[in-house]
Write a protein that binds this DNA or RNA. Structure first.
Lengths: 189, 189
DNA sequence: GTCTATAGGAGGATAGAC
DNA sequence: GTCTATCCTCCTATAGAC
């Protein structure tokens, strides 16, 4: 049996990611994590806010490893980015459009309502952008352009998730992937 | 004095857009709209859900006119799209990063929790994509490519909003705008 | 149409037994 | 560490006077 704290954190990451901060209740979390309400406050004395912040940062690390793994496994960066968009679309379909970006919903929701959580989401996005930028630089793209392309690529992916989840179709992800890859290819030539 | 129903709808559009569906309370709406709680249920007997759906569709129409106006005012589509990104960034700064896309927060939040509202957000996104696609076609881009580019452009803008609101910086919007414009220019040549 | 009061339930959080 | 009972607040929604 997995440790209680890990079960709570795992369930929180999933629920906050899908339903947002306000839309997820502590009772729902303990019910799905099969834990007692008291256990949440034992492990996360800061309550809902602390739990959500740890969920955000946990998602950040998991996805950082995913970004690195997918890009570093591919024959080159261009293929890696293409694989990432393709994989994101496949995962969206596999989860019936439930799991896209684990922090985007929270990010938009807390942007103007909770500065501490807002900062946590900003830190995570920065982590992802920096990882992508590193790889584009390694491929020979100058630092400034690499950062611009990384921000753009992440933005296109995040926005494609919004459109895809709303329409329950991966058309937007495919459109975004195609054009992002074209921009990276252009910067490499 | 503006009609009560309009005041409620206007305030709802603003609050749901910023805080999402679950994060916005009926009491907060009537307080800011300076109306009575009973008035909400008089004009919107379907309650919170009906109010949010009307807010989504209202935002859809307003932004549709904005998209059309900005693009049709510019000397050509490319300039129009560039102006749209520039204007979006300026508006974000002007509102201290509070107002970006009026339905994105709701869209992500309800994507896996409320099918009726999810459909409303999908309808609105489709409306915007169709308007952009029309203009790209008029500029000489074939239908299939025009739709793909429109989906991609909207995705890049939506995702740039997410990153910009989280980081409180318009760096992502500028990066997205530059690359989207480049893709459209490439399709036109 | 507008207002206030309130029902009825769900929210986050705490206390204290075990 | 875990569990249950419970506090108190806030939520959506309704009722009914005006």
């Amino acid at each position: 049996m997995v440790a209680t704290k890990e079960r709570i954190l795992h369930t929180s990451t999933e629920l906050f990611g899908r339903q947002g901060f306000a839309g997820t209740g502590m009772n729902q979390i303990v019910a799905e994590a099969q834990a007692a309400l008291g256990s949440i406050y034992h492990f996360f004395p800061g309550g809902k806010e602390q739990l959500c912040e740890e969920a955000i940062r946990t998602s950040g690390q998991i996805y950082l490893h995913l970004i690195e793994a997918v890009i570093d496994t591919a024959p080159d960066v261009t293929e890696g980015v293409r694989d990432f968009f393709t994989g994101a679309g496949a995962h969206l379909v596999a989860t019936d459009y439930a799991d896209a970006c684990p922090i985007a919903t929270i990010a938009l929701e807390v942007a103007s309502t909770n500065d501490e959580l807002r900062r946590a989401t900003a830190d995570v996005f920065e982590l992802w952008v920096a990882a992508a930028s590193d790889r584009l630089e390694t491929a020979g793209i100058p630092p400034h352009t690499a950062r611009e392309l990384s921000l753009f690529a992440l933005a296109a992916l995040e926005g494609a998730f919004v459109l895809s989840q709303a329409s329950r179709s991966i058309e937007a992800i495919e459109a975004a992937g195609t054009n992002v890859v074209a921009c990276i290819r252009a910067a490499l030539s």
